[in-house]
Each structure stands twice: as structure tokens, then as C-alpha cells.
Amino acid sequence: MNARRSIADLSADLADRAESFCRQYFPEGRKQGNYWQVGDTSGAKGQSLAIRLQAQGGRKAGSWQDFATGEYGDLIDLLKERLGSVTLKETLREARSFLGEAPCPAALRDTRKAERPDASTNKRIARARKLFAAGKPVLGTLAATYLQGRGITRLGPALRYHPRVFLRQGEDDADPPQRAPALLAKITDNRGQVTGCARTYLDPSTGGLAAIESPKRILGQLHGHAIRFWSGSPRSDLIVGEGLENTLSIGTALPEFDLASCLTATHLGLFIPPPGIQRIWIARDNDEAGRNASIRLRNQLELIGIAFGDLVPNMGDFNDDLRAFGKDPLRRSLLKAMKAQGLEIEDG
């Protein structure tokens, strides 16, 4: 095939394979009729973003809209958002790779060198920084109540609380955004720069998640980055997990370890290790998405010479394990798995 074909041609070819495209780049989503629904352009779980799978009523396949933000476009636009801070040239290279026209997809390249975000990404990052800066420490707030209700005691400066964060109820909500309390989590790159803010909307009446579509949402840039929790002592090992609560559940049981939460299985597979790390423990969920993310991250770690080990919960995720079995049994289970994979540690 001619690699110099127009962007419109590439977009049309991606649209012809829209469902395969969605399953490849948005595995956290699900098919609903003629649409693939996912939380946002980062690939988080939810239903705010809808991608049309087949042409219908004069509307093209592959067109999409994020009803929470108003963003829309074709699959080239969506792929660029999904890959994060990459150039249009790299996006087109990834599109051609998906279509079988070229090797070396952008998502698998060595992304440790920081890329310059485009204008729209910079705007979202600025909004994320402003939101997180407006938050306050979580102790004594609804956010602390939420985390403690899930058995989590490992907190840190990466977490804040805000009582009135802008919120749209769902994709069909045409009303002006409301405000709701939310747990905020700071997403950073390996230099410590804030690239995004994760929002977990809460229900004041129950202390749990808000009863809305997609109560967990991401603002800014997540690709390759994470929410980080340091133990206070320099370590060459890092535990990298999926969801925030699952990662903090491990941290509750193993407070001596540094943590990085990637928020989704997709972004777990795209994590960029910080300098100085010699071994990464991949703490995935016990499902197919988690297994696939672990394989993808392991493949990248092998290429750059970083050792790794897998941590898999007994139940669906590590927060399930924490709540079902308690902190001490979870600690023993984790250390047993880590020792079996080469960790040398005395557990007093």
C-alpha cells in the first residue's frame, strides 16, 4: 500500500475497521448497539465518549464525540488523543501500523524522552493543575471517609479533596455542569511535572462513589505517566498498579514500597519507568485486560533491561482482597509472591 496516501484515506480505512480499532485502543470500553462507549479519550472506563462503528443515517463510521467535554472528530483525531503527547506524523505512523502498512507503532516506541504537548493538550494540563492546586488535604474530608471505607490507610500529597468540582451527569446531559465533591489525584511525569488530575466524584450521603455515569474521570494527560506515592526511603523497586484504590490497597499492606497508579489497564501497559528503577512489580487486576496490560509492560521492560515481577490478586482486584481478607493477610500474600520471584526481604 502507498504510505503517502492522504489523511482522509487513512481515516476512511480506520473507519472500515472501527470495531477492531476500538478493541485495540479502548479495551476498557464496551459495545452498545452501533457504538463503542468508553469514559474519555484516555481510555478510562465509562460511557461519556461514543464511537460510531458503522455508517448509519448518513453519518460516517468512525466519528466520535465526548459528551462530557464536547470534543469530537474522526479516528485519526481520536488516535492522536489516545496516544497522548505525540506529533501528527507519529499518529499517522501508528495508524498505518494498525492497518498493516508500516512497522513500529508509536505506542511501542521508546517514549522515555518527553514529547512536547500540543496546544489542546496544554490547555487540559493547565486546567488539571489549576484544579489540583485548588484542592485541600484529604484528612478529615469526605475523600478520607471514602478511602477508609475501602480499608485504605496509605495516603499522601498526591491526593487532595475539593467539595465543588464541575460535573456533567452523562452523555445526554445538555444542562450546564453541576458541582460535586471529588477526590483529586495528581498525575505526574518522571520529572515530577503535573500532567493531569484524576477526579473521583463522591456521594456525601453515603461516603461512596457518586451514583452517576462514570464517577471516575481524568483531566489532562495520562499516557506514560502515573499517580505516585513515595515511601520516604530510596528504593530500586517500584510497584505499578492499575486503579488508584487497588494500588493504594497494596500500599496499605506494604507501606515500605513506592507506588505508581496508572488508573487503567491500558495505561498500565504504557507506563514509562522513572530513572534508577531496577525492578518493577506489575500489580494488575485478575482479568483479561490486566493480563494483556502486564504482557505489554513486560515486553517494554525487557527491551530496556528492567527486571519485573507479576502481582495478581486472589479476587478481582487488590481492594477486593484487602476488604475480604484484611491488611495483614494481604501483606503476607504479596510478600510470598514477591519472594517467589526473587525479592530478598525480611518481613518482621
Rank of each mutant, 00 (worst) to 15 (best):
R4E: 14
S6V: 05
A8V: 02
D9F: 07
S11H: 12
A12T: 04
D13T: 08
S20V: 01
R30W: 06
Q32C: 02
V38H: 02
G39E: 10
G57T: 07
R59D: 09
K60I: 00
G62R: 04
W64S: 03
L75H: 08
I76W: 05
L78I: 08
V86G: 02
L88W: 08
E101F: 11
A106L: 08
A107F: 13
P117M: 13
D118M: 01
N122P: 00
R124T: 13
A133H: 06
G135Q: 08
V138H: 06
L139M: 07
G140C: 04
L142D: 07
L142M: 07
A144I: 00
T145H: 12
G151R: 03
T153E: 13
L167A: 03
D172G: 05
A182S: 06
T195A: 00
T195V: 01
A198M: 11
S205F: 12
S205Q: 15
T206A: 12
Q221V: 11
L222P: 15
H223S: 15
G224V: 01
I227L: 10
P234R: 10
V240S: 11
G243R: 07
E245C: 07
N246T: 15
A260W: 08
F271A: 01
F271S: 02
I277R: 08
R279C: 14
R284T: 11
D287K: 05
G290T: 00
R298Y: 02
N299K: 11
Q300L: 04
L301W: 08
I304D: 04
N314Q: 13
D320M: 09
A324S: 15
A324W: 09
R332D: 12
S333H: 09
G342C: 05
I345R: 14
